[in-house]
């Protein structure tokens, strides 16, 4: 029998990472503060999850400045887009099967 959760991506196994990916999927890029506000987490928490996603190659980071303040932008990579879509499809299928 096929394992029903084999298509679930372990990298996305957290509410915060799901939130980051969801927001980035539908935006060209989002900066750190907006992301924080959107998902409602602390700086450190968000930063560590971003790092994990970045190391997986699912998001890319672009550091910039607005005046003197740093403005770090995050965007989803092609690989990230694909991986997240697969993950979403798997989630959808599982819900269907359970019902």
């Amino acid at each position: 029998m096929k394992n029903p959760i084999e298509n679930l991506n372990k990298t996305f196994d957290s509410r915060i990472r799901l939130g980051i990916m969801s927001a980035l999927m539908v935006n060209t890029s989002i900066n750190f503060n907006d992301l924080k506000q959107l998902i409602n987490v602390t700086d450190g928490n968000l930063a560590s999850h971003i790092k994990a996603l970045e190391e997986s190659g699912y998001i890319k980071v672009q550091k910039g400045f607005i005046g003197r303040k740093t403005n770090t932008l995050y965007a989803v990579t092609k690989a990230g887009e694909k991986a997240f879509q697969t993950h979403l499809d798997a989630l959808g299928k599982m819900i269907k099967n359970i019902k």
């Binding site: 509410r15 799901l18 939130g19 969801s22 927001a23 999927m25 539908v26 935006n27 060209t28 989002i30 907006d34 959107l38 998902i39 979403l88 989630l91 959808g92 599982m94 819900i95 359970i98 019902k99």
Partner: peptide, 20 residues
């Protein structure tokens, strides 16, 4: 099932809220 549905709903909501 409820947990997964909830998860999907979160995803949808963030997408809508944040999107252009």
């Amino acid at each position: 099932s409820e947990k997964l549905s909830h998860e999907l709903q979160d995803i949808k909501q963030i997408m809508e809220r944040s999107s252009r």
